[in-house]
C-alpha cells in the first residue's frame, strides 16, 4: 500500500489498536465472512422448516403460492440484483480512488434498497387485503400464547412466507443502515485506494441480503 498518492492531511490508513490497515482489512473481511456464515445458518433453519412442511403438505404450498404476485417478486429480484451490482462496482471505483463515483453508486444502492422496501410494503398491503395474512393465522396475542385458528384452513406456507420475508426485510433495513454509515464516511472523504475496508464489509453484507433473496424468490413465488 503506498501512501504517496494521498495528499489529504488527515490520513485514514485504517490502523487500529496498533494493527496496520492491511491487517485490519484482512481480519475484518475474515470476521465478516464468519458472520455471514452465521446468517446463512440462521436462515438455514427456516429453509429446513420449509423443506419439512413442503414434504408434509406439498399441495398446500403449491396452492397457497398461487396467491402471491410473481410480478412483485420478479421486480424485487431485479432491484436487488442491480443494487448488488452497483455496490460491487462501488468497491471497484474506490480501489481506483474514484471517490465521487463510489458515493454516487452507494446512493443508487441505498435507493434500490428503499425501493425494495416500498415495493414490499405495497405487496404486504395487498396480502392483507386479499386475506393471506389471515391464512398465516397471524393475530395479535401480546405474548400470551394460546393460539386459535383464525381461518378455517390455516396455511403453514403463509406463515413461512411472512417470517422469511419479514426477517429478510429486517436484514435489508440493517444493510441500509450499514451502507448509509459507509456513505457518510465516504462523503467525509475517509476512503481511498489504501483504505476502504468498511465499504467492502458493508458490500459483503448487502450481497448476503441479495444471496438470501435469490433463494427466497423461487421457494416462495415460483412453487405455484
Amino acid at each position: 500500500m503506498s501512501t504517496s498518492t494521498v495528499t489529504n492531511k488527515k490520513l485514514h490508513d485504517g490502523s487500529k489498536w496498533g494493527n496496520p490497515g492491511p491487517m485490519v482489512y484482512d481480519m475484518s473481511k475474515f470476521g465478516m465472512w464468519l458472520f455471514l456464515g452465521t446468517e446463512i445458518l440462521l436462515f438455514a433453519m427456516l429453509f429446513t422448516g420449509y423443506a419439512i412442511y413442503y414434504m408434509k403438505m406439498p399441495e398446500d404450498f403449491h396452492n397457497s403460492a398461487k396467491a402471491l404476485s410473481t410480478t412483485f417478486g420478479t421486480i424485487n429480484t431485479i432491484i436487488l440484483i442491480f443494487s448488488s451490482f452497483t455496490v460491487a462496482w462501488a468497491i471497484e471505483c474506490i480501489k481506483k480512488n474514484k471517490v465521487k463515483m463510489m458515493n454516487i453508486l452507494l446512493v443508487i444502492t441505498i435507493l434500490c434498497g428503499v425501493a425494495f422496501l416500498v415495493n414490499k410494503y405495497f405487496e404486504y398491503a395487498h396480502e392483507v387485503h386479499i386475506g393471506n395474512l389471515k391464512l398465516a393465522n397471524m393475530q395479535w396475542l401480546g405474548g400470551t400464547g394460546r393460539a386459535v385458528a383464525e381461518s378455517a384452513v390455516p396455511s403453514m406456507f403463509f406463515f413461512i412466507y411472512f417470517v422469511l420475508t419479514g426477517i429478510h426485510g429486517l436484514h435489508i433495513i440493517i444493510g441500509l443502515g450499514l451502507l448509509t454509515w459507509v456513505l457518510v464516511k465516504g462523503i467525509k472523504g475517509h476512503f481511498h485506494s489504501g483504505w476502504y475496508t468498511p465499504v467492502e464489509i458493508g458490500g459483503l453484507y448487502w450481497h448476503l441480503v441479495d444471496l438470501i433473496w435469490i433463494y427466497l424468490f423461487p421457494l416462495l413465488y415460483l412453487v405455484a
Binding site: M1, G21, P22, Y25, D26, I81, F82, F85, A88, W89, E92, K95, K96, S193, G194
Partner: peptide, 15 residues
C-alpha cells in the same frame, strides 16, 4: 490490498 486489476467487466457480465 488493492489488487490493481479492475474487475468491472466481469461484474457487468455477471450482472
Amino acid at each position: 490490498m488493492a489488487e490493481g486489476k479492475s474487475h468491472f467487466k466481469e461484474l457487468l457480465l455477471v450482472f
